[in-house]
Amino acid sequence: MTTVLVAGATGSLGGQIVKHLLDRGADVRALVRKSSVDKLTAHPNLTAHVGDLTDGADALARHLDGVEVVVSAVQGGPEVIIDGQRELLRAAERAGVHRMIPSDFSINLYGYGYGVNVLSDLRRVFADSFATSTVARTSVAIGAFPEYFLGPVHEVLDPAAGTFSVWGDGTRPIDMTTIADTAAFTAAIALDPSTAGRDVHVVGQQLSMMELRDEVEAASGRQWELVRKGTLQDLRAEVVRRQFNASSLVEYVALQAQVAMFDGTGSLRDVRNADYPDVVPTSLAAYLAGRGAAHFTPPETPRRPGEWPTAV
Rank of each mutant, 00 (worst) to 15 (best):
D23S: 14
G76M: 10
M261D: 10
L31E: 03
T132E: 15
V140K: 00
Q206W: 00
D55T: 08
S220Q: 04
H201I: 07
G96S: 06
V279C: 03
R90G: 04
T177C: 05
V135R: 03
T10C: 06
Y114S: 07
L31W: 10
A257W: 07
A141K: 05
G290P: 09
R24E: 07
V166D: 07
D104N: 11
A237Q: 12
Q256A: 03
D38E: 11
L46M: 13
Q258M: 15
V18F: 07
K39Y: 02
R29I: 00
P193I: 02
R236A: 08
N45Q: 15
D181Y: 02
A161S: 12
V279A: 05
R272Y: 03
H63M: 07
G51M: 01
A196V: 06
L255F: 09
V97P: 12
F164S: 08
G162A: 10
T265F: 09
R137F: 03
V156P: 01
L207W: 05
A183G: 01
N273A: 01
Y252G: 03
Q85A: 00
A246C: 06
H49K: 13
V156H: 02
V18Y: 06
S35Y: 03
V200I: 15
T163R: 02
K229R: 14
R303Q: 13
V227N: 07
V32I: 08
V259T: 12
A294N: 02
A144E: 13
V37A: 10
G290F: 10
L212H: 03
G51F: 00
V312R: 02
D199F: 01
M176K: 01
E79Q: 14
A184C: 00
L288W: 04
E211R: 03
T138D: 05
L31F: 09
Y287S: 04
P277C: 06
S139K: 10
M209F: 06
P305E: 12
